[in-house]
């Protein structure tokens, strides 16, 4: 039984979404996929090492952090939309050095 390909696939999908989509919410989805892949990897490694109690507690913490990230991201989306009424990353170039 080997779950590593699934983890790998999730990671790939997440990175792909992160790098190629222009909408901010899509970027959020990419981040989320990455987090879920990480959690899955955690649990699977816990099974391999037979220390599920330890790993699950780590997974719980990761999930909690994931929630925080999403919350802040959505607040960012909201604030950005207030300023410029668009969620297209091509319009967000004001940090150009």
């Amino acid at each position: 039984m080997n779950l590593w390909p699934f983890v790998f696939a999730l990671f790939t999908l997440g990175i792909f979404c992160l790098l190629t989509r222009r909408n901010l919410v899509k970027i959020l989805i990419g981040l989320e996929l990455l987090s879920k892949g990480a959690t899955l990897a955690l649990i699977w490694s816990g099974i391999l090492r037979n220390s599920l109690a330890y790993t699950q507690s780590l997974a719980v913490i990761v999930i909690a952090i994931e929630v925080m990230v999403v919350a802040i991201f959505l607040a960012l989306v909201y604030a950005f939309h207030e300023k410029s009424s668009s969620l297209d990353t091509d319009d967000m170039r004001r940090l150009k050095g």
Binding site: I15, L18, L19, T89, L95, K96, G97
Partner: peptide
């Protein structure tokens, strides 16, 4: 090194990855 700051979000994400 100023060239690295494109202001494009995707570039930054690329660096992160």
């Amino acid at each position: 090194s100023r060239e690295m700051q494109t202001g494009d979000l995707h570039w930054n994400l690329l660096y992160v990855v």
